[in-house]
Amino acid sequence: MSERRVTDGELETMSVIFKMLSDQTRLRILLALHNRELCVAHLCEALAMEQSAVSHQLRNLKAARLIKNRKDGKNVYYSLDDEHVLHVIDQVLEHVRH
């Protein structure tokens, strides 16, 4: 295995992402957004959670650049920022099931 060179900034960013992935609610949100975008109301319904709790987690995920949003009138729709995070989740799930 070759040595990986990682900068301090990259380590910090990786740490933030792993922190985001360490919470079941945030994982459930990320999985719910797989291949689709949802508004907060639909996420609340899918997760059976209050709007304030979901909104709080969405702010965290957006700050970590794991999700993005777009406005359509009064509604805000959320989606994954890119598919990379799903690859990480899939790898961990594969490890868990192994």
Rank of each mutant, 00 (worst) to 15 (best):
L66G: 09
H56N: 01
E94F: 04
K68M: 12
N60V: 02
E94L: 10
D72L: 10
A64W: 04
N69L: 08
D81G: 05
E50S: 09
L86V: 09
I89V: 15
G73F: 01
R59Y: 06
D90S: 04
V92N: 02
I89N: 01
H95T: 09
K62H: 12
L66A: 08
H56E: 01
Q57T: 03
L93E: 11
G73Q: 05
S52C: 02
Y78D: 00
D90P: 01
S79I: 00
H84V: 11
D82C: 14
N75D: 13
K71A: 15
H87K: 14
H95Q: 06
D72A: 13
D82W: 12
H84W: 12
N60A: 03
K68C: 12
Y78W: 08
R59T: 10
G73T: 08
L61C: 08
Y77I: 00
S79H: 00
Y77H: 07
V76A: 13
S79Q: 14
I67F: 06
R70Y: 11
N60E: 03
N69M: 12
Y77W: 08
E50G: 13
L86F: 06
E94W: 04
R65C: 10
L80Y: 04
I89A: 02
E50Q: 13
H56M: 02
R65H: 07
N75P: 00
L66N: 06
L66S: 12
G73V: 01
Q51R: 12
N60C: 06
N69I: 00
L61M: 06
H87W: 11
S79L: 02
S52K: 13
I67M: 13
L93W: 08
K68I: 04
V54F: 01
L80M: 03
E50R: 13
A53T: 13
V92C: 12
H87I: 09
L58A: 00
N60K: 10
E83Y: 15
G73E: 06
A63G: 05
Q57C: 09
Q51Y: 03
K71I: 11
D82S: 15
V85E: 07
A64I: 02
L58D: 00
V88F: 14
L66H: 04
D90V: 01
V88W: 14
H56C: 00
K74Q: 03
H95F: 05
V85Y: 09
K71V: 12
H95V: 10
E83K: 15
V85D: 07
V76M: 11
A53Y: 11
V85G: 12
D90Q: 05
N60D: 06
K62Q: 11
A53N: 13
K74N: 07
D72I: 09
I89S: 02
D72F: 04
K68T: 14
V92G: 07
N75A: 15
L66T: 08
